[in-house]
Design a protein around this nucleic acid. Sequence first.
RNA 1: GUGAGAUUAGCUCAGUUGGUUAGAGCACUGGUUUGUGGUGCCGGGGGUCGCGGGUUCGAAUCCCGUAUCUCACCCCA
Length: 403
Amino acid sequence: MIRSLRGMNDILSPENERFEFFINTATTIAKRYGFEYFEAPLLEETALFKRSVGESSDIVGKEMYQFTDKGGNDVCLRPEGTAGVVRAFIQNKLDKKGGIQRFFYHGPMFRYERPQKGRLREFHQFGVESFGIASVYEDSSVIMMVADILKALGITFRLKLNSLGCPECMPPYRQKLVGFLESVEEHICDDCVRRKATNPIRVLDCKNSSCQKVYIEAPKLLDNLCESCDSDFTTLQKLLTDNGIDFEIDNHLVRGLDYYSKTAFEFISDGIGAQSAIAGGGRYDRLVEFLDGRPTPAVGFAIGIERLLELIVMPEPIREGYYFGAMDEIGIDMVMQSAQKKRQSERVIIEYTAKSLKAHLKGADRVHARYCAVVGENELKAGTIWVKDLVEKSESVIKVETI
RNA sequence: GUGAGAUUAGCUCAGUUGGUUAGAGCACUGGUUUGUGGUGCCGGGGGUCGCGGGUUCGAAUCCCGUAUCUCACCCCA
């Protein structure tokens, strides 16, 4: 038997219903916030991810599905969605167009990782990218949009917030932090020593408790923000509070991708295992420029759909449409015609084999049909069809021509 | 990439110190005083015990390898 590749799952019932419900819900809400659908290719030039996500990240360093295509191009299956959207944004000269442009997307992403609960090699994200607004008001709108989506799905969450600073205040802070790390190098773990060189900010996120003890003394990014970053962060907190969004400040929150600046946020859900981050995002004002576009402020987020699936509270399934069946072989063709007519406007399930009435009712029930329409001996003679409303439990006999 | 635990019917799981033909519940399917479901009763089909070796008179059971899944690390959605 040929099996699917490791970490690549089929999505079938009942997850597929949740999946579809999620996409519909998220799409409706994204449109309410003024976002429009956008689709970028799954395959992109490797250089795109190296430049945007960052060579220091694990994603680019060891998790990409990278290969050479038949034309000799160095290509990658996308490990995340933002890079492709930004590339398309620039390539289609939307950066020159200016103004405010808001997009949402959803689809598969690929990372060559060891799979476990909430972590797959092919997984799906729903994300949005808002271009052209530097104001922190858009940050708050984007965060409220995630909250709206999660609420609509019946998912409870915790929101973590941080500011990563800007090109003005981040580099000096980084210097300060590296200086501190060098002074305590003997007391921190090997991973942190490695991080000091590759991405020092990430040591703050280290799960090693002895490291955390050392970092209590570390310089705090929030104490080192420049005036504008600081006031933006304050404004953001006020906006969220005004709109009834609870949050906690987590100055250890570091986004894993290099392109983020200023606002960084993460939505956490307890009870889905170690992979508790269900959505993450933030501002990336420099990325468009960095990929050779006209400087354009931007903010966005991505939701990990698989991580959400088991948390989604589905609405009550409603009975819908018709079930058609016949009790005798001879009635099947006639049922087929009536059903086909009905199918032009309603959901219709047809049973092709003759069965007892009881069996048909069972069948109608199983496919969640509202009405069970059956032709038996009596109906065949009279040119009628027997219909039972499975919700009202009422029955009627109607002429076939009136279907 | 590292460490640990699992894998028996479509699903969730039993299975004794290694011993006839490997079981249950759910699901599916059929029947049940004649044409009434989701919710009675009775029956039926369905398993090379993850795969490959080994030990043994005999392996679901013990040993080795391998694949997959799960948990943790790393990292991330």
